[in-house]
């Protein structure tokens, strides 16, 4: 079986994996270049932008002494809350209508829609993650923020939130290819979900009846978990790991099947 430089003769799983990694890496670098260019601070914008958001919200909440139903430090509250919002909000936003600007690349057989989605998701997760870590270290360094009590739990819940964001992004992103209404609806939806997402309050501070309803939203579980990892000894967290995991898994499956649909019905030009 002749395989030339592009190595495309249908091969083993290992070979497919190698090609996929190569393609995603190529798309990742290209995405960084097209989004941030080589001007001023270049790719540093990747995490400086989300950092500015988080710092802004932290400042705003501190200045207005936001009522969040606890006596936890506002900085810790804002950093954990807003960092999680960035994940589930920006990932879908970046995946909506993602095919059109990439039509040219889809002419190359090894570039599939899933590669475009994955490269964008990796980039968003990296930006939000780096900004989260840098801010945690920075606020810790200047003494505004105690170090997380349980680093492993923080990492675990952050990954759960990232998985949620990725599943939601695949689903909504791929769905937007078949209906423009998806894009129109996502904007108000994410705006309305923000105050309900648990980033601005502790579930424990809500009336019991409201807790029941708010915990239907999967991202609330992630934020609660994240905060328990951060300052669990100062709060009572309400969450179910299994509930969120089921949501994530279902969204991922729906998302992947929708992406497959995009692949099958792709029309170039």
């Amino acid at each position: 079986m002749p395989v030339s430089a592009d190595g495309t003769a249908n091969g083993s799983l290992a070979q497919s994996w190698r090609i996929q990694r190569r393609v995603i890496w190529a798309l990742l670098l290209r995405e960084i270049l097209t989004r941030y260019g080589r001007h001023n601070i270049g790719f540093l914008w990747l995490f400086v932008e989300p950092m500015l958001f988080t710092v802004g919200v932290t400042a705003l909440w501190s200045a207005t002494k936001s009522v969040h139903g606890s006596n936890l430090p506002i900085v810790a509250f804002a950093v954990t809350g807003y960092s999680s919002v960035l994940l589930w909000r920006n990932m879908p936003t970046r995946c909506i209508m993602a095919m059109e600007p990439n039509m040219g690349l889809l002419y190359h057989r090894n570039v599939r829609p899933i590669d475009i989605y994955l490269s964008r998701l990796i980039l968003e997760a990296a930006g939000a993650g780096i900004s989260f870590v840098v801010l945690t270290l920075f606020f810790h360094f200047i003494g505004w923020l105690a170090f997380p009590e349980d680093v492993l739990e923080v990492i675990g819940s952050w990954l759960m939130l990232a998985w949620f964001g990725a599943g939601l992004a695949l689903f909504i992103g791929a769905l937007s290819e078949s209906s423009e209404a998806v894009e129109k609806l996502w904007h108000p939806a994410q705006y309305l979900l923000f105050p309900l997402s648990g980033s601005g309050f502790l579930v424990d501070a809500l009336p019991v009846q409201a807790q029941h309803y708010i915990l239907l939203l999967p991202m609330v579980h992630g934020v609660e978990m994240l905060r328990e990892g951060y300052f669990g000894s100062q709060m009572v967290a309400h969450y179910s790991f299994a509930y969120m995991a089921i949501w994530n898994a279902v969204l991922t499956l729906l998302g992947l099947s929708q992406v497959r649909n995009v692949s099958m019905t792709l029309e170039l030009e």
Binding site: G7, L29, R30, T34, G37, G104, L105, H108, N110
Partner: peptide, 19 residues
């Protein structure tokens, strides 16, 4: 990609094909 230089476009294609 119109916002990339000709050279950067070449690099993207080369990366995709692993050369």
């Amino acid at each position: 990609q119109g916002s990339l230089t000709g050279l950067d476009n070449l690099r993207v294609i080369c990366r995709i094909y692993g050369v």
